[in-house]
Amino acid sequence: MINLKGGWIMKSKQETIFSSKTLTYFLQLAETMNYTQAAQILGITQPALTQQIKKLERTVGAPLFYSVGKKLRLSEAGNTMLSATHEIYEVLNQATDEIQQSTSAESGEINIGLLASVEYSVFEDFAIQYYKENPDVTINFHMLTRKEIWDRLENNRIDLAIMYLPDDSIKNRKPYRSKKIITEDLLFIHNDEKMAKRKKIRLKDTLNNVWVTYPREYYLDQVLRENYKNAMVDLPNAVARFTTPDQIYQFSAETGAYTALPNSYIIAKGADSNLHAAQFEPGIKFDLAFVFRKDKDEIPRVGRLLDAFDSYLEADDYISRLTQIHDQKYGVNHHDEGAKD
């Protein structure tokens, strides 16, 4: 109950359900199916999370979760609540998009979530050029993990994501669209002179040395693990894990540890006399793409940016842009190669 000018008013069930962060807590637990992990992500204690879930269950009048051994499962009521919660967020996000479509449509901010493991130089160059032609639009880039990207897309805190696909970590794909930028090759990076001239290297031949790679929850590490398991080959022995390609590349160059990085990063980084790059056999490929909520591209400033990026790549394709940016950064002039002073 709440007191209003001396009178008592009973809170409705709806007010109880949607108060504070109850639904956020429920969604996080439904995603992780682990109280400890969900509480850590939410930044609260496990007892506090348990209390909120029990409060929600008392309100709806049914248990939302049940346990099978040590594993947590959604009950029938829990599945109904999960579906309803997604629908609620969908309605709110659609309302936000409709408002943005009708107010400040041509100017304002565009928030872009960029996967932290993606080579960003092309997007940085595009943003500079786009600003020169569209000074009334502010582009905010956020370097994020995959989970942070999906969370912010779900909560409408970013307009566009630039990330790798396919991605099975998102359970509710219906509200989203994707637009491919380029198909990436994952390259094997090594310092073994015996393999230096080989353009393709089998997975089983990459196990004679230690590795450096991304953390286990990162997309590229999961792609690697899946390909090794599918080929029935032992997983590489990772002795170090870093969150950015620069850190991984530097560790590999200094220690001789093997690794795997996208072709786009190797082009942007340039050759290193100590390291060699080769394709895996069989090849490991994935897409780099824009991901956004359906109808988000109908907001004029967002649609215009996507169209402008298409035009940007039509003038020079993605790989050509990478090469140009690398050459400008390191002062390479192909016309002057071999010339003498």
Results as ranks from 00 to 15, higher is better:
residue 85 T to D: 11
residue 247 Q to Y: 00
residue 260 A to Y: 03
residue 147 K to D: 14
residue 185 D to Y: 10
residue 241 R to E: 10
residue 302 V to K: 03
residue 75 S to Q: 10
residue 246 D to G: 06
residue 32 T to F: 07
residue 278 A to H: 04
residue 77 A to K: 08
residue 320 S to N: 11
residue 275 L to S: 13
residue 330 Y to L: 03
residue 42 L to F: 02
residue 52 Q to G: 02
residue 331 G to Y: 01
residue 183 T to A: 03
residue 224 L to A: 05
residue 222 Q to T: 08
residue 54 K to Q: 10
residue 97 D to P: 00
residue 71 K to Q: 13
residue 259 T to F: 06
residue 266 I to M: 03
residue 212 V to R: 04
residue 136 D to R: 02
residue 28 Q to A: 08
residue 277 A to G: 06
residue 180 K to P: 02
residue 195 M to V: 01
residue 224 L to T: 07
residue 340 K to S: 12
residue 136 D to P: 00
residue 78 G to N: 11
residue 200 K to E: 15
residue 207 L to H: 07
residue 157 R to M: 12
residue 315 A to G: 04
residue 140 N to M: 10
residue 242 F to W: 08
residue 14 Q to E: 13
residue 180 K to M: 13
residue 40 Q to N: 13
residue 116 A to C: 05
residue 15 E to I: 05
residue 210 V to Y: 07
residue 104 S to H: 13
residue 191 N to G: 15
residue 214 Y to H: 09
residue 334 H to L: 14
residue 174 K to R: 08
residue 279 Q to D: 10
residue 73 R to V: 02
residue 300 P to T: 09
residue 150 W to F: 15
residue 59 T to C: 15
residue 296 K to Q: 14
residue 295 D to R: 14
residue 142 H to P: 00
residue 335 H to C: 03
residue 173 R to K: 04
residue 312 Y to D: 02
residue 283 G to A: 13
residue 138 T to R: 14
residue 83 S to M: 12
residue 249 Y to E: 04
residue 71 K to D: 11
residue 176 Y to R: 00
residue 22 T to I: 08
residue 299 I to L: 06
residue 322 L to M: 12
residue 238 A to W: 07
residue 191 N to S: 15
residue 104 S to P: 00
residue 259 T to Q: 08
residue 285 K to W: 04
residue 215 P to S: 09
residue 244 T to P: 01
residue 62 A to W: 00
residue 152 R to Q: 15
residue 291 V to Y: 06
residue 165 L to S: 07
residue 53 I to R: 05
residue 212 V to H: 05
residue 19 S to V: 02
residue 167 D to C: 00
residue 165 L to Y: 03
residue 308 A to E: 10
residue 51 Q to A: 13
residue 120 Y to R: 12
residue 246 D to W: 05
residue 185 D to G: 01
residue 205 D to S: 15
residue 327 D to S: 15
residue 255 T to R: 11
residue 339 A to T: 13
residue 202 R to D: 12
residue 80 T to P: 00
residue 323 T to Q: 05
residue 303 G to V: 07
residue 226 E to M: 06
residue 101 Q to A: 15
residue 226 E to R: 10
residue 334 H to Y: 05
residue 333 N to K: 01
residue 62 A to F: 00
residue 335 H to I: 07
residue 337 E to L: 08
residue 304 R to H: 09
residue 117 S to A: 13
residue 233 V to C: 05
residue 14 Q to G: 03
residue 38 A to W: 07
residue 296 K to M: 12
residue 30 A to T: 04
residue 40 Q to L: 12
residue 76 E to H: 13
residue 23 L to I: 10
